[in-house]
Design a protein around this nucleic acid. Structure first.
Lengths: 196, 196
DNA sequence: CCTACCGATCGGTAGG
DNA sequence: CCTACCGATCGGTAGG
């Protein structure tokens, strides 16, 4: 997260807000906290954002867009095998998350502080994302690429293991996002049990 | 959550605080919110709890204790097979979580608002819990009950899928905690792939 | 980008 | 369990 000197003041503010919201939670983060971290007065933030919520909305919307763009990319370049496609989706998701862990956590944990109509829109998008994975699993089951598990349950297991990554991932760690994706797919597809 | 008439006022308050903290987040929940929901004035809460944080601490501590008591029970009655033991731990974890989803979510998401020394104690306990699962997986690998996966990675995958359950679990749903445990173990141990 | 300020709300206390 | 109240802090505005 160096290189702030090339960002607009608005982007700088959003970046610092992301880390602040992640650390203290949205509700416990004040505009004065945020202003102090960037070295201006609280009132000056309002020349860049209309409200505190607008900052949160921007963070959450950008993350949501990234996830959906990634799925569209995969749709365009997809081949037949459902497990390959699933692996692509998992790796893409991990890349987005690991690219900005703080933003990923704010997206995951602080969206509930959005007010209507943004709250409903957010929930709808998240459901659409889950449905995409669910359909992918169902396709896999129908094509006999995936065994007959409870697909909704499997979808939740996959997404939960993805969404937990920001909690333990450190960019300095020994595994790259791709390696994390491969290992996770291995565990999810082959299981941790010895074949018998 | 009926049957409140048999609870002490303190327990009533803690129960309502649990649902309030879960819904709005700890920081955004005020003592006045809490008081209003139970029908008293905010100042009256302080005859039961010394501070807002004490309520959060009580919720988090009780959950942590439940998790550790469960592990101790399993240790006392455990047999040799590591996958059986792992399954017992997973089912026990799920039973605790599904017994009070709101408390589980507060435990998982709001602990960061604890101040020292409680914060450090909490983090230490959580690490010990993770280490227990890690050791269990390593034992399983050494005894050839579990294939040679990255045990730390597998531990995180397991705990993440467990910790995500409160988000989708509804007590009115068709799966019991035991059935959820069985299905999850099946996915984690055998994987979702077709055996080949 | 600032100073100066607003009304509202916060956690918590005093005293009964 | 209440009323009455404290100082601090909140998100946000006016005006420059």
């Amino acid at each position: 997260m160096s290189g702030n000197e090339n960002l607009s003041r608005k982007d700088q503010l959003e970046g610092i807000a992301t880390r602040l919201f992640n650390k203290k939670g949205y509700a416990a983060s004040s505009m004065r906290d945020l202003a102090q971290e960037i070295g201006i007065k609280a009132a000056s933030i309002y020349s860049h954002f209309d409200s505190k919520e607008e900052i949160l909305l921007s963070i959450c919307t950008k993350m949501a867009d990234k996830f959906f763009y990634a799925l569209e990319d995969i749709e365009r370049s997809s081949c037949g095998n459902m497990t390959d496609k699933l692996e692509k989706c998992i790796v893409a998701h991990i890349k987005i998350i690991t690219n900005d862990v703080a933003a990923a956590q704010v997206f995951m944990n602080e969206w509930k502080h959005l007010s209507e109509p943004y709250l409903s829109q957010f929930i709808k998008k998240r459901q659409a994302y889950e449905t995409y994975f669910l359909d992918l699993l169902d396709d896999g089951i129908n094509h006999n690429n995936i065994r007959k598990v409870d697909s909704k349950f499997a979808m939740l297991t996959i997404l939960s293991s993805l969404n937990w990554i920001p909690i333990w991932y450190k960019p300095s760690g020994k595994m790259s996002p791709e390696e994390i994706g491969k290992e996770l797919c291995s565990i999810l597809i082959k299981g941790i049990g010895v074949s018998n």
